[in-house]
């Protein structure tokens, strides 16, 4: 499971019930949260374990792969 490609999560807010399970299962360090108490959706997750998607009781988290950070801030191409 090493060297996963980073992903950007997307949350279907219509189905989200704000249960917090995604944040609870998330192995990221402090702060990988959105203002709505879900996992962050405004920056890539470089762990990409996808546990949040797996635990979501309403199956409303999806992701898109994003280029691995070439520079220091993760916005450059591969």
């Amino acid at each position: 499971m090493s060297k996963q490609q980073p992903v950007l999560f997307s949350i279907g807010w219509n189905a989200c019930i704000n249960c917090g399970a995604c944040v609870a299962i998330c192995p990221q360090e402090a702060g990988f949260v959105s203002p709505f108490d879900t996992i962050a959706v405004d920056r890539p997750c470089d762990i990409a374990c996808l546990l949040c998607e797996q635990i979501c009781p309403v199956d409303t988290i999806t992701h898109q792969p994003v280029p691995r950070p070439g520079g220091h801030n993760g916005v450059n191409g591969q």
Binding site: A21, I25, L51, I55, P57, V58
Partner: peptide, 11 residues
């Protein structure tokens, strides 16, 4: 950190 096998998703 909690294991995925030990966190129940509840509804």
């Amino acid at each position: 950190h909690i294991k995925i096998t030990e966190l129940a998703g509840c509804l």
